[in-house]
Write a protein that binds this DNA or RNA. Structure first.
Length: 200
DNA sequence: TGGCCGATATGCT
DNA sequence: GCATATCGGCCAA
């Protein structure tokens, strides 16, 4: 069965980062035979937690490009996948979780001994599940990856950033309310997610 | 040049 | 729930 149709074009990313992060929920991300539905994202622009501020050299692409992959290493071992956004302003969207949709056997081979929910439910996990590495940094978003919009938009909730120590009050984390594949057990505890129609 | 910290994941208490 | 692995980038000296 096909749950996705139209491919995303580069102009999709040349918009307000929060709108891009919200609209990426439900999008299918495919690399070869492996695919997953994006169920959780985070938006970063020029807030104090953004790499545009904390790692200006490596995150230079946030300000100079849109629709390019930004892959960085964290805590020595893990890689995270972002896509740069906005024309003429710094911005990037962190892909935080996928719901596995195709190529489950390949994902299991890449992450042996993991439950299906843990295959791609986390920023570093989905990088492993898709078989990406640091060499993907700087590529065009569609160089080796296919992004397709959902036939029907899922219900999107918003909540605060997680995993960071600054600017945690910004409600720039977006997630599919119906998906059990979001990281950190789903809805945030301290601030309950709210409807995310319209950016703020 | 040294030291500190991080947009994480995992294992142990 | 909390400590820790592990390393590149960044800032202070």
């Amino acid at each position: 069965m096909s749950t996705s149709t139209a491919p995303i074009d580069a102009g999709f990313f040349a918009r307000d980062t929060r709108d891009v992060a919200r609209d990426l929920i439900g999008v299918t991300l495919r690399r070869g035979d492996v695919a997953g539905v994006i169920v959780e994202t985070e938006a970063y622009r020029d807030d104090p937690a953004s790499h545009w501020v904390t790692r200006p050299r490596t995150a230079r692409c946030m300000g100079e490009t849109f629709a390019r992959l930004y892959v960085y290493r964290i805590y020595g071992v893990h890689l995270c996948l972002n896509v740069t956004t906005e024309r003429g302003r710094p911005g990037a969207v962190l892909i935080r979780a996928l719901a596995p949709a195709d190529g489950l056997d390949v994902m299991r081979a890449r992450r042996p001994g993991r439950r299906d929910r843990e295959l791609a439910g986390g920023p570093a996990r989905l990088v492993v599940a898709l078989g990406l590495d640091a060499s993907w940094n700087g590529r065009r978003f569609d160089d080796g990856l296919v992004w397709t919009t959902p036939r029907a938009k899922p219900s999107v909730a918003r909540g605060p950033h997680i995993g960071i120590s600054r600017a945690t009050e910004l409600p720039w984390r977006f997630m599919d309310v119906a998906s059990p594949h979001v990281s950190r057990g789903g809805a945030p505890r301290r601030a309950r997610p709210q409807a995310a129609r319209g950016s703020a």
